[in-house]
């Protein structure tokens, strides 16, 4: 039985006169792994940031289990605790060790006791292969390692949905693989994921739905097969031709 977690309705966002998102509608069901693809500047990242309320939408609704989070009086902090986010630039807390990064949210936000939080942090750090580095500070580890810690930090909060904002775009080519394989593992565990990415192979192989965005609208969406093998829109085909040829 599919259960709707997130529902985005008529979402619009502009920065000044620049209209970045135009009347976006889409839903996220339990267990979905959705890849959002599209050219730079098409509004993919803004959409993700609006969903997490890091940007305030100009109009429209973001329904989380039926409750609108984009309106007046919604508790953004407790909503964000249930919707994890992994950033392109990692955003690990520079003043804390790797372990501390994964504990602080659990203790301060979820009010878990320290021992449980530490156990949980170690479990997820082990899962992403960062257990030996728990005493390191973020500035002492590589980009790929940082991103894996960031994923562990998000997972330790037991989110219902995990948003990835171009998680591999700031990484060296040889580090992209380690992060993607961690993400594949999470997807296989059944986590609901929303991934803005330029990694077409990941979009094709891991996600169950692919959303193609262009100029602030959802141009086309469907299963990876539909999008990659038989795109209906000319723009989708054009965008993907670069990937097929490359």
């Amino acid at each position: 039985m599919e259960q709707q977690i997130l529902q985005v309705k008529h979402l619009s966002k502009s920065f000044g006169k620049q209209e970045v998102l135009k009347d976006i509608d889409f839903t996220v069901n339990q267990g979905d792994v959705i890849s959002i693809i599209g050219a730079s500047g098409s509004g993919k990242s803004t959409l993700l940031r609006c969903i997490n309320l890091l940007e305030t939408p100009n109009s429209g609704e973001i329904l989380f289990h039926g409750t609108n989070m984009a309106g007046r009086g919604a508790n953004a902090a407790s909503y964000r605790a249930k919707v994890g986010m992994v950033f392109q630039s990692f955003n690990l807390f520079n003043n804390m060790t790797v372990l501390e990064n994964c504990i602080v949210g659990q203790v301060k936000v979820l009010k878990r006791n320290r021992d449980d939080a530490q156990k949980r942090a170690l479990e997820f750090l082990g899962k992403v292969g960062m257990a030996p580095y728990i005493n390191a500070k973020p500035r002492q580890i590589s980009g790929g390692q940082k991103q894996r810690v960031a994923i562990a930090r998000a997972l330790a909060m037991d989110p219902e949905v995990l948003l990835f904002d171009e998680p591999t775009s700031a990484l060296d080519p040889e580090m992209v693989g380690e992060v993607l394989s961690v993400m594949r593992g999470i997807a296989a565990d059944g986590m609901t994921m929303l991934v803005v990415t330029h990694e077409m192979a990941f979009a094709r192989d891991v996600s169950n739905r692919v959303v193609y965005m262009a100029d602030g609208v959802i141009c086309e969406q469907g299963t990876p097969d539909q999008i990659f093998s038989a795109p209906q829109q000319e723009r989708t085909e054009e965008f993907l031709s670069r990937f097929h040829n490359g």
């Binding site: 890091l54 407790s78 964000r80 994890g84 950033f87 990692f90 807390f93 520079n94 949210g105 998000a154």
Partner: peptide
């Protein structure tokens, strides 16, 4: 302090 630090903290639900 890098604005990303604030976003990272906000994203895990900190006030």
């Amino acid at each position: 302090v890098d604005p990303g630090q604030t976003e990272g903290a906000k994203a895990i639900g900190m006030t």
